[in-house]
């Protein structure tokens, strides 16, 4: 683990506030996430989930507060961090191949001017194999399905061989195979002591996939181990009236495995079936 002090938090956010033009989109958010944890960020649309990730990564100016990655500012720890943007944020008709996109994960390590070489491509191929995409390495990216696009992005982040991963809605609109592949990958990363922060929509799968959860709605409603904070009361606070709690199978305790929250269309689909 690159000589990282495992005592310090992997990600420590204090009093983070972000404002667009005239209104705050994140207000006074705190987080102290221990290493080796899988954390979901959940909250209604416009809660600032993506903003939080982008602010942590320095992609948005922050109004106040501080972000530390393993005890140091992000700019010093860039090599420890990998980012998986939303799939829809790029033009998939861009003239490039899957392997080429994944190789981009090496650009940070290469620095200015240097071109990726054979070694970098080999690393990219390894990452593609991990997401089960190595047979598609030469494919033009416009010919990929949504799930394959997502796996390409994941492979690109894997190539960075980071310690902390930020993923913006990796489960958005992917097929069941990809979803399983991503979950397996997350568990593999955790087993290797990595930390993963995932913007997530499907409340139902939170207890199954993640160790930690942050409930966010402009302010941090709660953050901590799923068993402690993923409660009906906290969800109600996060989603306001918009959340409908359908039947508590066998009286859901804390951990809320039985809470079927219909907070998003995605979750609603499964709840309604």
């Amino acid at each position: 683990m690159n000589g990282i002090d495992t005592e310090t938090c992997a990600v420590e956010v204090t009093d983070l506030t972000v404002a667009y033009a005239n209104k705050p989109v994140l207000w006074d958010v705190d987080l102290a996430l221990p290493g080796g944890t899988l954390m979901a960020i959940v909250g209604p649309n416009g809660a600032g989930k993506t903003t939080l990730i982008k602010a942590i990564l320095g992609l948005l100016p922050i109004a106040a507060g501080q972000v530390l990655i393993y005890g140091k500012p992000y700019t010093d720890q860039r090599k420890l961090v990998a980012y998986v943007p939303q799939r829809g944020s790029v033009d998939w008709d861009f003239p490039t191949s899957v392997l080429d996109v994944v190789t981009m994960g090496r650009y940070g390590a290469l620095g200015w001017f240097k071109r990726p070489g054979k070694d970098d491509q080999a690393l990219a191929m390894d990452a593609l194999a991990k997401v089960g995409m190595d047979h598609l390495a030469d494919r033009q990216i416009s010919q990929l399905s949504g799930g394959q696009q997502q796996r390409t992005f994941l492979a690109r982040a894997l190539v960075q061989d980071a310690d902390v991963y930020f993923m913006d809605e990796p489960f958005q609109g992917v097929d069941a195979t990809t979803e399983r592949a991503i979950v397996a990958l997350l568990q593999e990363l955790r087993a290797a002591g990595k930390t993963v922060i995932v913007v997530h929509h499907d409340l139902q799968t939170v207890p199954e996939y993640f160790d930690w959860v942050m409930l966010l709605n402009v302010r941090r409603i709660a953050a901590g181990p799923v068993a402690d904070v993923f409660t009906e009361a906290n969800l109600r606070k996060t989603y306001g009236g918009r959340v409908a709690f359908m039947g508590k199978n066998g009286g859901a305790g804390p951990g809320a495995a039985g809470v079927q929250a219909v907070a998003t269309p995605e979750a609603g689909r499964t709840g309604g079936g």
């Binding site: 982008k54 990564l57 320095g58 992609l59 700019t75 860039r78 961090v81 980012y83 943007p85 944020s89 790029v90 033009d91 861009f94 490039t96 996109v101 981009m104 650009y107 940070g108 290469l110 200015w112 001017f113 240097k114 071109r115 990726p116 690109r156």
Partner: peptide, 17 residues
């Protein structure tokens, strides 16, 4: 390499520094 990154995925490029 940098221009390719800029044209394809600006935010990702920024996250790489």
């Amino acid at each position: 390499k940098e221009f390719k990154l800029l044209s394809f995925d600006r935010d990702y490029g920024a996250s790489l520094g």
